[in-house]
Amino acid sequence: MRLRPLITAAAVRLAESGVASPLPDAENLAAHVLGVDRMRLALHPMIEADEAARFGQLVERRATRIPLQHLTGIAVMGEIDLAVGPGVFVPRPETELLFAWALAYLETLGHAHAPIVVDLCTGTGALALAIAHARPDAVVHAVELDPDAMIWTRRNTEARAADGDTPVTLHTADVTDSALLTELTGRVDLVVANPPYIPEAAVLDPEVADHDPHRALFGGPDGLDVIRAMTPNIARLLRPGGATAVEHDDTNGAGVAAIVTAAGLAEVTEHPDLAGRPRFVTAHSPSER
């Protein structure tokens, strides 16, 4: 049977269910069933009956607002695929912007020494592993507290190492603990973080509210509790001239900028996402302290 009419009907079904991106999701599910890249679906105009049945089942599950990534088992960051599922925060496309900034910053350092990178609240390991893949010379540390999330962190870390990427060192620790990574104090070139940052009263889509771990989502009444508490650690870890990039809720660009400024960091810059909403803040440790 022909594939495209099935995809069109699936997109209608998903739109009726309130899915925000019905056609891309339908196409991604079809590509998953066929084992091909979504961009190559045009090369597969036909689908077998058993594949069509499986596709229909996945569409119905997606219509109940189960996240697309839970159905395919994969999320993407940079050039790598990450295993995802219940118990861990699904990386968002918006974080690709922070990742791109991080790589550009590392390029400014050159390749004369192996840069030390720390990823706080690593979850799946998305930022840490994507940086390690793109910069095999980097020494990357990833910090996660939630044991359920750490199951996925370890799974992804082991998979990337098996594929030949530079191993990432994992730490089960609280990013707000003043004793965090004391052995790296004043030595880190770059700290990245995608912490829990959603204000507690926020109304979320079912994919997020019902499936992402609440511990990975909410950052107190204003969404800034974790960021406030971890920023002194970021300032302590950075070497003179080192940099940080922290993702935040789109209501909190100015708030995060104020927090990192109060911690003594400089060159504080607010960055928007592709929709123009505040998304992450970068800052540098003063060259002389």
Rank of each mutant, 00 (worst) to 15 (best):
M1I: 12
M1K: 13
R4L: 13
A9D: 09
G18C: 07
G18I: 10
A20N: 10
P22C: 02
P24V: 07
N28Q: 15
N28S: 15
N28W: 14
V33T: 05
V36C: 05
R38S: 14
A42V: 14
L43R: 11
L43I: 00
E51S: 07
R54C: 04
V59G: 09
R65P: 12
P67G: 06
Q69K: 08
H70A: 10
T72N: 08
A75V: 10
L82Q: 05
V84K: 14
V84E: 10
P86A: 15
E94L: 11
E96T: 08
F99T: 09
A102H: 09
H113L: 10
I116P: 02
V117S: 01
D119N: 06
C121K: 13
T122M: 06
T124Q: 13
L127N: 04
A128Y: 02
H133P: 05
D137K: 13
V140R: 03
A142E: 00
L145H: 07
L145I: 10
D146P: 06
A149W: 04
I151Y: 11
T153A: 15
R154F: 07
R160Q: 14
A161F: 10
D163C: 12
G164I: 09
D165C: 15
L170N: 11
A173N: 00
V175R: 01
T176V: 02
S178A: 14
L180D: 00
A193L: 01
N194L: 05
P195Y: 01
E200C: 10
L204Q: 07
V208C: 09
A209L: 13
G220H: 06
D222Q: 07
R228W: 00
A229C: 05
M230V: 00
M230Y: 00
T231C: 01
L238G: 06
A243Y: 06
T244H: 02
D250W: 15
N252W: 03
G255C: 07
I259V: 14
T261M: 09
A262I: 04
A263Q: 01
G264Q: 05
A266G: 12
T269G: 01
H271T: 04
P272M: 04
P272W: 08
D273Y: 06
P278E: 02
R279A: 00
R279P: 00
F280C: 04
F280I: 11
V281K: 08
A283W: 01
H284G: 03
